[in-house]
């Protein structure tokens, strides 16, 4: 009655054929027990029946898919065409999913001029649109903290400011993934679903992540987001220019993060948040290029990194004029 284990009833029945001492009314008891065990098993199957609905959206091919780094070129092509077809089916949008790989000789670094940033939030919005985030939650990889001047203590800041900016005696601190050189999120992932690529971008294989959210707990910059539900984006708003490791529409139940828009930056373009910035506070470039903007800033400006004491070695700098 109690055990939902079907083998219980089998055991009981097979036992019933033998003549064992001790138990009286053996056959009847066995039948009752078997009956209750069957009932329990049936009730269990009924209880977990919502799983069948969930199973419908996962195909066997998707279930068996290997880790991104283990896919052969043909397998990758198959996976990508499957994902494109799925996006068409679920969202009604024709999209192209590329597999952008790092450009040899690049290491991406970001810098933000805190003297200039006025907290207008255009970058937050651009990220939201560029990366096909869920519309109902206004999800974005960027958060901007309004900070009182005279402190770098985020405890004194607020992300829920609104209205006219910049306010007197405040400065604005946009925070997104810092693409750390010692990323704690990568260390803690139990299944290697997230890793750092040669150009410094920390990526997630959305088709390998098991959704344990350990990385979300480990990240000191609140850079990771979990898909608590299937993202909802209207077909006409979907950005069709996608990449496997970047802004393709994510499945439910996995973790995602800022990729420095690798579907743009690995094709030589600037990230969406930078292009959207009306104040020109954002600077992006290849730190291995001696003539790059980013090198000049690091050599000539006072730079600051967030939570330096944690030893995460961010590839993200803040500077002042």
């Amino acid at each position: 009655m109690t055990s939902t284990d079907p083998c219980n009833s089998q055991q009981a029945e097979s036992k019933a054929n033998r003549s064992l001492p001790i138990v009286e009314n053996f056959t009847r008891r066995a039948a009752v027990k078997g009956g209750f065990a069957t009932l329990g098993a049936a009730a269990f199957v009924a209880a977990i029946s919502p799983l069948r609905q969930a199973a419908k959206s996962t195909t066997a091919v998707e279930f068996m898919q290997r880790h991104y780094t283990e896919l052969s070129p043909e397998q990758k092509a198959n996976v990508i065409s499957r994902l494109e077809a799925e996006t068409k089916e679920k969202y009604g949008a024709d999209v192209t999913i590329a597999d952008d790989r790092p450009i040899p000789g690049t290491k991406f670094v970001y810098a933000i001029n805190l003297s200039v940033c006025n907290g207008n939030g255009k970058c937050v919005e651009a990220c939201h649109k560029e990366n096909n985030h869920d519309r109902s939650t206004n999800q974005s990889y960027i958060r901007v903290i309004e900070m009182p001047k005279g402190t770098m203590d985020m405890e004194k800041g607020s992300t829920t400011y609104s209205g006219i900016v910049p306010k007197d005696d405040k400065f604005y601190l946009p925070v997104q993934c810092q693409q750390c050189d010692e990323p704690p999120c990568v260390d803690v992932c139990p299944v290697k679903a997230t890793w750092k690529e040669e150009d410094g971008i920390v990526v997630v294989d959305y088709n390998w992540c098991i959704g344990c959210r350990y990385c979300e707990a480990a990240c000191p910059y609140h850079a990771r987001r979990f898909n608590w539900k299937q993202p909802e984006v209207p077909a006409e708003e979907i950005n069709p220019d996608q990449s496997y490791l970047s802004n393709r529409v994510r499945p439910v139940g996995v973790v995602e993060k800022c990729t420095y828009c690798l579907h743009r930056t690995r094709r030589g373009k600037l990230p969406a948040c930078l292009e959207a910035c009306p104040t020109g506070a954002r600077v992006f470039g290849n730190i291995l290029d001696k003539n790059s903007n980013i090198r000049w800033i690091l050599e000539n400006k006072r730079v600051y990194i967030l939570k330096e004491e944690l030893g995460t070695k961010p590839a993200f700098f803040y500077y002042f004029d």
Partner: peptide, 9 residues
């Protein structure tokens, strides 16, 4: 000055 238009919910 500008007005903040977009906030994550």
């Amino acid at each position: 000055k500008m007005i903040v238009g977009f906030k994550p919910k």
